[in-house]
Nucleic acid binder design. Structure first.
Lengths: 240, 240
DNA sequence: AAGTGGTCTAGACCACGCC
DNA sequence: GCGTGGTCTAGACCACTTT
């Protein structure tokens, strides 16, 4: 409608998009089956799927396993620089968040990780993998790497809880600096499998480096998000 | 290879991906024609294009007009919170940036914009549209809205230059706060056309609200980026 | 067992860029 | 005018989910 784009897939995209945005389909409700939509819009299945893919990229619909297409719930607003727990954030926005610890290992830092964490080649780090969901829908897989030197007795902590609270209350890290990067990416195994998306699906990668008051890296963190699940936010004061 | 994914498109994707990452294809070099790649990998054109689309989502290749597929140049690192000019940023990273002013208009703020900028319904704002390129490749289209009340004589300024410098030197705004949001999006006309991407291509949307020392919104800014052109960065100090 | 999306083929025609 | 990618069709079979 607003587009002067006269292709078949664009027409289908606009039609479904309007149905969603005018509230005819509620959050997490399924669309009709692909073959039914084909007939409804009189297009072939590949054209229909091109339209659905664009709606997926727009963050309006998502797929679940092989069971169908569903209307996306609203996005989570997330502020990675502020050291407030993911759980508090999500709850404040009316979501029900959960965290599942997938694995904990002590590993030797490889070349890449050593560079990222400014370690020498012989260091070992504790690697955490966690999966976080809102309202039962997994939205991010995160890998956290702790510099062992700064986290004695880490294995005794409950690592499915807030890392921030642990940093503050148990390890007394109060003054920290963060360095964050955000970029578009593709999700593959194993992240794709855990998030319930297709291999090669669109994602958002958020990396975070945490330094203590002395400038040493105490933690490195990589979050792989469903692209349709979040808006990254940041508040800052600046002197020009 | 690292994937246990045995689909044809995945094999093609991995093969091309390795060629690029092992440096057999340089930045901005074209791939072979789609029909040639089909023959080379013994797959149909739609399978081949599925592989190419994923490589595009991974930020490894991009398309230019209808002329072919090319290897992506490295990404620009960009820190929207820091009030350093885009041009300085790009130059420091070895790029050649350019800015083109597309339009300047005084408009009445509609409902949406009034809400975003906390204006009453009768306010007028100055709307700027600019297109920014690095090394000749357009990477973002931005809309900037100035609250007129804080920018007397704006029409006399050169609006293709740094807005930051203008804020500081001409309008003497020194203490500011920013509020930024970043999310995945789809690019449509007119942004898609200006960026030389297909309608419905993947993008990254960066929105910024600028407030003066009194907390009033003086500027609102929406940047639509090619998804493969940037890594958003942020540095912050925090007290827990 | 039936229904769903996921993968894949072998064509076709078109709009546009480039020569 | 030829070659490119962009759109589109009408099938097919498979893996998985749901009933």
């Amino acid at each position: 409608m607003s587009d002067n784009n006269s292709f078949a897939y664009a027409a289908v995209r606009e039609a479904i998009s309007e149905q969603i945005q005018h509230g005819k389909l509620a959050e997490n409700q399924p669309l009709a089956a692909e073959r039914d939509l084909c007939e409804q819009f009189q297009v072939s299945r590949s054209t229909l799927r091109q339209a659905l893919s664009q709606l997926e990229n727009m963050g309006l619909i998502y797929r679940k396993n092989r069971s169908g297409w569903y209307v996306c719930p609203r996005k989570l607003r997330y502020e990675p620089t502020r050291h407030v727990s993911f759980l508090d954030y999500a709850v404040a926005q009316g979501f029900t968040p959960t965290t599942r610890l997938l694995s904990v290992q002590k590993i030797k830092a490889g070349a890449k990780l050593s560079q990222l964490m400014e370690l020498d080649g012989r260091s070992t780090v504790t690697a955490l993998t966690r999966l976080r969901a809102v309202d039962g829908r997994p939205v991010l897989m995160e890998q956290i790497y702790f510099n062992q030197r700064h986290f004695p007795g880490l294995e005794k902590q409950d690592l499915s809880l807030s890392i921030n609270a642990m940093l503050k209350n148990h390890y007394h890290h109060h003054a920290l600096s963060t360095q964050i990067s955000i970029e578009s990416c593709c999700l593959f195994t194993p992240a794709a499998a855990h998030l319930g998306v297709n291999d090669g699906a669109l994602g958002l990668k958020v990396q975070r480096t945490l330094r203590n008051a002395e400038g040493e890296i105490i933690e490195f963190d990589e979050e792989l998000w469903r692209h349709d699940a979040l808006v990254v936010e940041n508040h800052a004061h600046i002197q020009m």
